[in-house]
Design a protein around this nucleic acid. Structure first.
Length: 212
DNA sequence: GCGACAG
DNA sequence: ATCTTGTCGC
């Protein structure tokens, strides 16, 4: 657990918050994990969507066991193994991935999205339902946003993805800049608060858990 | 010491 | 995260 924090501090300098030249993603993956509380069983899903139609073009789901407790701040160590497992089973390599949690909007600037991005080399964005750092409420309309600030540093955005709903918290994971990450997330939310990527990954993961 | 604390 | 009934709205 102390070891996990040291590993985050070691990897953090390797995060790249710049968008690769000519970045024009055609596919985007959603990653999510579902749990069966009593048993400790879990299901990790990776769903690749066509970025224009938002329809799935590739899916992978794996069953596993929770081998690391949930501890805020080192949350990645709980979901990482199963998620990497699911990613390996994809027939496709997504152009960018959306993670269900923080990117650099994290106490040590190294949330789940950074960790997965670094390990795979694929651009990643963190989209969390809850913020870990301070922010002022953004305007009430879809597309309105306000900066996520920690230690006087802008580490992400509170982004309103639908009129009048609670914002989501976007931050860079790896190999993408905050502006591009925010634009992408908004495109992935044409109808609901959460991106289609995480919605579809969540659905697939739960379905597998319930089926066994 | 007490509350906060991604999922 | 997961456990649950009802309720409001499109």
């Amino acid at each position: 657990m102390d070891e996990a924090v040291r590993m985050q501090d070691l990897l953090r300098p390797l995060v790249d918050a710049r968008t690769p030249a000519g970045f024009a993603p055609r596919t985007v993956a959603g990653l999510d994990v579902a749990y069966a509380v009593p048993s400790g069983r879990l299901a990790a899903a990776a769903v690749v969507l066509d970025i224009d139609t938002l329809r799935p073009v590739d899916t992978a789901v794996v069953l596993g066991e929770a081998r690391f407790p949930y501890v805020s701040g080192v949350f990645a160590f709980r979901e990482l193994p199963a998620l990497l497992d699911a990613l390996e089973r994809l027939a496709t390599t997504p152009d960018v991935m959306i993670c269900d949690g923080q990117g650099v909007a994290h106490p040590r600037r190294f949330g789940l999205a950074c960790h997965i991005g670094l390990l795979t080399g694929i651009p990643t964005v963190g989209v969390a339902k809850q913020a870990m750092v301070g922010y002022r409420p953004p305007g009430p309309r879809r597309g309105d946003w306000s900066p996520l600030v920690d230690d006087g540093e802008v580490v992400g955005r509170a982004l309103r993805t639908q009129d009048g709903v609670k914002p989501v918290f976007v931050s860079v994971g790896h190999r993408i800049d905050l502006g591009a990450a925010s634009d992408l997330v908004l495109r992935l939310c044409p109808r609901f608060r959460l991106p289609e990527t995480t919605r579809q990954a969540d659905y697939v993961a739960r379905r597998l858990l319930g089926a066994e």
